[in-house]
Structures are given as structure tokens and as C-alpha cells.
């Protein structure tokens, strides 16, 4: 289909199903939520659309702004962690032997075959007080303590009287780790796609011309993979910003994210108009992030031109 103008019929036939999908299952529900955000509750289930801005005013109260900020910080931290771990992984896969690539990629994608809610429950079994990590640590502690005793140092109790399990669960670190775990493949895949396409000649040229490995990475590889990095950041950050069940399950007493507040408005608090307003504020934030990407990639294009 070189030109849709020449083959208008083909164009429309092929585009009708996806367009219908987009309108019926995305734009229309979104529009309904948008309209509800300008409504007022009238009793238990009725919502009157009055055009009020009260819901937005309430959503901009300091307490909700703080929660927004906290969500941005935690999603940001998770995104940075994904990038720091994901970049070397993507790099290694891209430079691995050709026959290993599909297997390595498969290993990255494999956890995605399991529902993320179940994977989050699995993390509880790993991190909890009597979980796998603490059991492993306890085993190491016992061996070390036995070794010390064998050398006649047992009475000093250098390792403490008994093993103290690490508090790995029910705090914000656990939530951040949970988000990293849930969205890690989203970071690796676009990075891999980008790194894999780099012309190796550039790297060889840089090394031949006397630049060290570090200099080559910073001046050649990093700029060439900029698009992959930005795509990865956006694809991880946006869903991380709306996460709610990860903080529900892994979080402590102060792990409330904006996703949790929104979920509560649609369920326990039964305040759909307020929940809708919060959702749309979150969406505007997302648009902001996307606009930022558009601006930076636009600048890149000009630099490259």
C-alpha cells in the first residue's frame, strides 16, 4: 500500500477493525471517565455531570500532590534501576553469539508468561522473614558461626547471639524492587533492538582512532542508543507511575502510591468523580513525559542532521 490515496478502499477496509477497536475500547471509555471527572456524587450510585471543577481542586490539595510526587520518585527510581541493570543485559545479548541470542531473549521474556500478580506473590515468598533469601542467609550464618566455633572463637559471638532475619518486605525498597521486577523486560527489549542495530564499524573506528573503551562507550555507543534508552524509560516509567497492586502487596505502612488512592476511589470510597479526576491528572503527567521525549528526540534529530 504505497499510497493510501490510490487505494482508498483497501486503506479503509484494513483500518476499520483497529480504528473501531481504538474508538470503542479506548477512546469511548476514556471519554466517559473524563466526563465523570466533572461530575458530583448524588447518593450511592448516581453521578450528576455538572461541569464542576471541585474534583480537580481537591486532587490538587497538598496531600494528593505529595502522593503524586512520591509516586513519581518511586517510579523514577525503579526506571533508573531498570536502566542500570537492563543496559548491560541488553548489551550482552546484542553482542552474544548469534545462536545464543534467541535463548537469552527468551530468558528475559519468559517471566512474562506468568501473570504479574502471581509473580508479585512469588516475590513475597522470596523476601519474607522466613523466605528464600533469609533462609539462605541463615544457612550462611550458621556455617560461619560453626567455623568460628571450630577456631575457638564461638564464645565471642562475633556474629551476634542468633541470626537476625533481614527486613526485606513491607517497605518502599520492596515496592521499588517489585516494580523493577515487573517491568524489567520492557526496558531490555527496546534497548536490545537499538543496540543490536549499531554498525559495529563505528565502534571499531573509535577504538582504532585511539579512544579508550570508556570514551568509545560515552561518545559513540551511548548517543547511538539514545532512542532505545528513551523508549525504555517511557515504557517502564508510565506503567510504573500507575502501579497499585505491587505497593498493596509488598509495601509497608507508608507505601501508598497514587494508583492506590485511585483504586480506592473506584472501590471502597465509592467516589468515581474524584477517582476520575485523579486518573486524568495522572494521564496529563504521562502526556508530559511523552512530550518531553518528543522534544528531546526532536533536538537529537537536529543535532544529527
Amino acid at each position: 500500500m504505497e499510497s493510501w490515496r490510490k487505494n482508498a478502499l483497501v486503506f479503509w477496509v484494513l483500518n476499520l477493525p483497529p480504528s473501531f477497536w481504538l474508538v470503542a475500547f479506548f477512546l469511548v471509555p476514556l471519554g466517559i471517565v473524563w466526563v465523570i471527572s466533572f461530575g458530583e456524587k448524588r447518593g450511592v450510585i448516581d453521578i450528576a455531570i455538572t461541569g464542576t471543577l471541585d474534583n480537580y481542586a481537591r486532587a490538587l490539595e497538598p496531600i494528593y500532590l505529595e502522593i503524586f510526587w512520591k509516586s513519581i520518585v518511586m517510579a523514577g527510581a525503579a526506571t533508573v534501576a531498570c536502566l542500570l541493570v537492563g543496559y548491560p543485559v541488553a548489551f550482552a545479548i546484542a553482542f552474544a553469539a548469534e545462536r545464543w541470542k534467541p535463548i537469552l531473549l527468551m530468558l528475559v521474556v519468559l517471566p512474562f508468561w506468568i501473570n504479574s500478580l502471581i509473580r508479585t506473590y512469588a516475590l513475597i515468598a522470596v523476601f519474607r522473614t522466613r523466605g528464600y533469601i533469609n533462609s539462605g542467609l541463615e544457612w550462611l550464618w550458621e556455617k560461619a558461626d560453626w567455623l568460628l566455633s571450630a577456631f575457638g572463637l564461638g564464645h565471642l559471638q562475633l556474629l551476634g547471639e542468633r541470626f537476625e532475619p533481614a527486613a526485606l518486605l513491607y517497605n518502599n525498597t520492596a515496592v521499588t524492587l517489585g516494580i523493577v521486577y515487573a517491568f524489567f523486560p520492557f526496558m531490555v527489549l527496546p534497548l536490545y533492538a537499538n543496540i543490536d542495530k549499531i554498525d559495529r564499524a563505528y565502534i571499531e573506528a573509535s577504538l582504532d582512532l585511539g579512544a579508550g573503551h570508556w570514551r568509545t562507550f560515552l561518545s559513540v555507543v551511548l548517543p547511538l542508543t539514545w532512542h532505545g534508552i528513551m523508549s525504555g524509560i517511557i515504557i517502564v516509567f508510565v506503567p510504573a507511575l500507575g502501579a497499585f497492586f505491587i505497593s498493596d502487596l509488598l509495601g509497608g505502612t507508608d507505601s501508598q502510591l497514587i494508583g492506590n488512592v485511585i483504586e480506592r476511589q473506584f472501590k471502597a470510597a465509592n467516589d468515581w468523580p474524584f477517582g476520575a479526576a485523579l486518573s486524568f491528572l495522572l494521564m496529563y503527567l504521562t502526556f508530559g513525559a511523552l512530550a518531553l521525549r518528543a522534544i528531546t528526540s526532536g533536538r537529537k534529530h537536529r543535532l544529527e542532521a
Binding site: 496531600i63 507508608d254 501508598q256 492506590n260 488512592v261 480506592r264 471502597a268 467516589d271
Partner: peptide, 15 residues
């Protein structure tokens, strides 16, 4: 009143 409870709860979790 439900809203009072929800707002109090939001503050508890945010504190």
C-alpha cells in the same frame, strides 16, 4: 461521612 473516613485513611497512609 464515608469521604471523611477515606480522607483520614489517605492521611494515615501518607503520614
Amino acid at each position: 461521612v464515608q469521604r471523611l473516613y477515606d480522607e483520614a485513611w489517605t492521611r494515615v497512609l501518607a503520614a
